[in-house]
Design a protein around this nucleic acid. Structure first.
Lengths: 121, 121
DNA sequence: CTTTGTAGTATCCAGTTGGTAACCACATAA
DNA sequence: TTATGTGGTTACCAACTGGATACTACAAAG
């Protein structure tokens, strides 16, 4: 029988910022929405075209949630018919380094996988 | 009627590294598992204690998946009963900057939310 | 008068996820 | 002899997720 090691690792900082942040960028399409908005503001139907395959329901859901969390600004333009401009808020822009770090890792992973595929591993 | 803007935003790099990476760190408990393993190697039951509330089923699922993806190393020790050491692979360590960036954002979010709570916003 | 584009809603449904609980063989400690 | 710890596995199930589809009101263009 083996003595159980008792040393606890440092806990993830209280009430886990990991979960905090991942609950925002988690969910299908969400990171992509943030990605598109990070370079410029976009209208609803523009986003729908950018994110090929997303249903209007899900796009609305995501945008509403991001708006409630203060990540995204929603601005109705007085055109006819009214158009709606979505953009990243200042808070939303804080997400960019995280997204970029994730993208960077994703690219490394892709390289490794393609290398493996070529080597037939 | 409004002319649809035609300018397309830069696409997320092909076959989206975002999704690539998020499919790895996504899923309940996964980021936390990586967090714990990032500071030292841990045994199955140690992780189970670290991640209070995780069921053995899910822990196994996560570890198996991470192992298949080459993020985590699994090493059976010749003790009695056999113990199993999990650790981050070199590839797994590449995830750390991304996790740290996410944690950083999570902390900012938390500060903002607590500030809002105090101000009664 | 019909069509088009706007920004969504409403409804239904299938698939996935994650949780609970029970169970396993084995060896050792009490 | 019985209990304990090891690292899981299995079956079941409720909840959540996201996709497909159809639908809306309104105004303007043709």
């Amino acid at each position: 029988m083996i003595a159980r090691r008792k040393n606890r690792v440092v806990n993830p900082p209280e009430h886990c910022p990991l979960g905090q942040c991942l609950s925002i960028i988690g969910g299908a399409w969400t990171p992509n929405i943030i990605w598109y908005l990070s370079s410029q503001s976009r209208r609803f139907s523009e986003l729908k075209d950018d994110l090929q395959g997303i249903s209007p329901k899900v796009l609305t859901q995501r945008l509403r949630k991001l708006e409630n969390e203060g990540i995204v600004n929603r601005k109705v333009m007085p055109t006819s018919p009214p158009t709606v401009e979505y953009s990243l808020s200042e808070l939303g822009k804080e997400l960019k380094p995280a997204i970029e770090a994730i993208v960077a890792v994703g690219e490394k992973l892709k390289k490794i996988k393609t290398a493996e595929a070529i080597l037939g591993a």
